[in-house]
Simulated scan of single mutants.
Amino acid sequence: MTKPQSGRLIGASLGPGDPGLITRHVWELLQRTDAHWAYPVRRKDAESHALQIALRAGLTLPEAHSPLIFPMTHDADILAGYWLRAAETVLTRLHAGQDVLFLVEGDASTYSTFGHLARTVRALDESIVIETIPGVPSFNAVAARVAMPLADTDETVAIIPASYGITMIERLLNDFDTLVLLKVKPLLDDILDLLERRALSANAAFVEKAGTPQERIERDVLQLRGQKVNYLSLLLVRNPDRQRGEMIRGCRKKTSESTEETL
């Protein structure tokens, strides 16, 4: 008996929350009746944010589907065990010749659980074809939602999880025109203190659960001090002082060069 050709593992990016941001490519994939859906959850029986985006789009969860547990922990040994179990679950379907659509909130290439799953699957079977379908990242959706440009002309942008710490955040504020801080929940008050000290709070915007019915936008970010916020939250910070400083330094450099040419 001929062994069936292995299915493909496909990272299906859904955007951050608004079903209207699902790309046409992913929408067409989700219409298939022969593909298996897999999606991340933080613990058994927990709600999947990625799955909810698809359901809000009017799609129906297939009878055969696989919630894959990716727990909220930084313990590498614990995570490795869950990644392995998720990969083995997916491989069962792939080896049977079925394509697996892994539903991803935001973009599958940007701080996504799909990367962990794909690497583990490839380590177990390097012959598996893995495809990534791009989507709208949360920070692009948020920038549009609050009418705050991420970058203009030759400006620079840094995108980091807030867990890098206050020292790193302050350093990046000096080096970049726009700073995108993801997963701000654990350090929110410390970040707000920094923004207040640097007089940057008026140039910041906070968005929680972007594009969902529970979306929350706060432009007066200092009002968030002491509040509990959702894990799916971020801060956009613009640094106009850096922009003015770069312009001044650029003008001085041109003046200096012109003077030297005259001499």
Rank of each mutant, 00 (worst) to 15 (best):
L29Q: 14
D154G: 08
H116V: 01
D190Y: 02
S138P: 00
E63D: 11
T33E: 15
H65F: 07
L188N: 02
L179C: 04
L21I: 05
A151C: 10
G226L: 13
L235E: 01
L101T: 01
A64S: 11
G226A: 12
T212K: 06
P40K: 09
L14I: 03
V184P: 01
H49I: 11
E170G: 12
D77G: 04
S138K: 00
S138M: 03
E28T: 13
A162F: 04
F176C: 11
R56G: 02
L14N: 01
G81K: 08
T167R: 14
L173T: 09
G97Y: 09
L30N: 05
R56Q: 14
L29F: 13
A96V: 07
T120L: 03
C251I: 14
A80C: 05
L124G: 02
F139M: 07
L236P: 03
T156G: 03
S163L: 15
E170K: 12
D175C: 10
V157S: 05
E131R: 12
L84W: 02
Q243D: 02
T2N: 13
L21M: 13
F114S: 02
K253G: 00
Y82L: 03
P71R: 04
G20W: 09
I169C: 05
N203K: 08
R8C: 13
A141I: 02
L55A: 08
T89D: 11
E170Y: 05
R43T: 10
A144D: 06
H116I: 03
A38Y: 05
E257R: 10
L79M: 13
K253H: 14
V207T: 00
A151W: 06
I128T: 11
T113E: 03
N203Q: 15
Q227V: 04
T2A: 12
L55N: 06
V229N: 09
G135S: 09
D189N: 14
T92G: 14
I69V: 15
L173P: 08
A210T: 02
A147Y: 11
Y111R: 07
M1L: 11
L182P: 00
P19G: 01
E208G: 01
T259H: 14
V207P: 00
A205T: 08
A57R: 01
A64F: 07
K228E: 15
E131T: 15
E63K: 08
E257P: 00
W83M: 07
S138R: 00
I128M: 06
R252Y: 08
S66M: 07
Q98I: 06
F139N: 00
H25K: 15
P40N: 10
E261P: 00
D220F: 12
L79A: 10
S112H: 12
D193W: 04
